[in-house]
Simulated scan of single mutants.
Amino acid sequence: MRVSDLTDHTGYWLRMVSNAVSQDFARKVDAEGVTVAEWCFLRALFDADGIAPTLLADRMGMTRGAISKLADRMVAKGLVARMESGGRGQTLALTATGRAKVPILAAMADANDAAYFDALPDADRAALDRILRNLAERRGLTATPLS
């Protein structure tokens, strides 16, 4: 019986590329004082003008506890503010510093993506995006990848 080699698996190649893309990006955002998870959190808040932590948790596919821990870190860094929203509820919103940081981090994400995927012809890149989105949808993968 033949035992498959590691390199026989599509997942092997996907992890190899994904790990390299993710690790390079993590090093870049670290220079800006944030983690990849914090970048995802900031980007999720960027389009909202204050959002309840529970709604943010649902949108990102995270637990409320994980959102609370991320929020604590971002508040301590001066990038996010907690505001009372009447009654017992609260909302999270970017501070001016946090709002200014998001376009910088987004440009870094764009450049990181380009460094890896601009080598592909446009049709191949579009096909790769389509295939990966299709696989994610078929598997019901909705949680924001944080690492």
Rank of each mutant, 00 (worst) to 15 (best):
residue 1 M to C: 13
residue 2 R to N: 13
residue 2 R to F: 01
residue 4 S to A: 15
residue 6 L to D: 14
residue 6 L to P: 10
residue 6 L to K: 11
residue 6 L to I: 07
residue 7 T to A: 15
residue 10 T to N: 06
residue 10 T to F: 11
residue 10 T to Q: 09
residue 10 T to G: 10
residue 12 Y to K: 01
residue 15 R to G: 06
residue 15 R to V: 06
residue 15 R to K: 12
residue 18 S to K: 05
residue 18 S to Q: 08
residue 18 S to G: 09
residue 18 S to M: 03
residue 20 A to R: 14
residue 20 A to Y: 08
residue 21 V to P: 06
residue 25 F to G: 01
residue 25 F to M: 02
residue 26 A to W: 04
residue 27 R to P: 02
residue 31 A to L: 14
residue 31 A to R: 14
residue 31 A to W: 00
residue 32 E to N: 07
residue 34 V to E: 05
residue 36 V to I: 15
residue 38 E to N: 10
residue 39 W to L: 07
residue 39 W to P: 05
residue 41 F to W: 12
residue 41 F to H: 10
residue 43 R to C: 06
residue 45 L to P: 08
residue 49 D to E: 14
residue 49 D to N: 04
residue 50 G to R: 00
residue 52 A to L: 12
residue 53 P to L: 04
residue 54 T to Q: 12
residue 55 L to E: 15
residue 55 L to G: 12
residue 55 L to C: 11
residue 55 L to S: 12
residue 56 L to P: 14
residue 57 A to M: 07
residue 58 D to H: 14
residue 59 R to H: 13
residue 63 T to Q: 08
residue 65 G to S: 15
residue 67 I to T: 15
residue 67 I to Y: 09
residue 68 S to H: 06
residue 69 K to F: 10
residue 71 A to D: 03
residue 71 A to P: 08
residue 73 R to I: 08
residue 73 R to T: 12
residue 74 M to S: 11
residue 74 M to C: 14
residue 74 M to N: 06
residue 75 V to H: 01
residue 75 V to S: 00
residue 76 A to C: 02
residue 76 A to R: 05
residue 76 A to K: 03
residue 77 K to R: 03
residue 77 K to V: 07
residue 77 K to H: 04
residue 78 G to F: 02
residue 78 G to M: 02
residue 78 G to I: 09
residue 80 V to D: 00
residue 82 R to G: 00
residue 83 M to C: 10
residue 83 M to Y: 09
residue 83 M to T: 14
residue 83 M to L: 13
residue 83 M to V: 14
residue 83 M to K: 14
residue 84 E to K: 09
residue 85 S to G: 09
residue 86 G to T: 04
residue 87 G to A: 02
residue 87 G to D: 03
residue 90 Q to T: 14
residue 91 T to Y: 00
residue 93 A to H: 11
residue 94 L to V: 08
residue 96 A to H: 06
residue 96 A to W: 02
residue 98 G to W: 03
residue 99 R to A: 15
residue 100 A to F: 04
residue 100 A to Y: 00
residue 102 V to T: 04
residue 105 L to V: 02
residue 106 A to P: 02
residue 109 A to N: 12
residue 109 A to E: 10
residue 110 D to P: 02
residue 110 D to L: 03
residue 111 A to W: 00
residue 111 A to S: 11
residue 111 A to R: 01
residue 113 D to N: 03
residue 114 A to S: 10
residue 115 A to H: 01
residue 117 F to S: 04
residue 117 F to C: 05
residue 119 A to I: 13
residue 119 A to T: 11
residue 120 L to W: 00
residue 120 L to S: 03
residue 121 P to G: 06
residue 121 P to K: 03
residue 121 P to S: 07
residue 122 D to L: 05
residue 122 D to A: 13
residue 122 D to K: 02
residue 122 D to V: 00
residue 123 A to S: 13
residue 125 R to G: 04
residue 125 R to N: 12
residue 127 A to E: 13
residue 129 D to T: 12
residue 129 D to Y: 09
residue 133 R to M: 08
residue 133 R to E: 09
residue 133 R to Y: 13
residue 133 R to D: 10
residue 135 L to K: 10
residue 137 E to W: 12
residue 137 E to D: 14
residue 138 R to D: 13
residue 139 R to D: 09
residue 140 G to W: 02
residue 141 L to Y: 08
residue 142 T to Y: 13
residue 142 T to F: 06
residue 144 T to S: 09
residue 145 P to L: 04
residue 146 L to R: 14
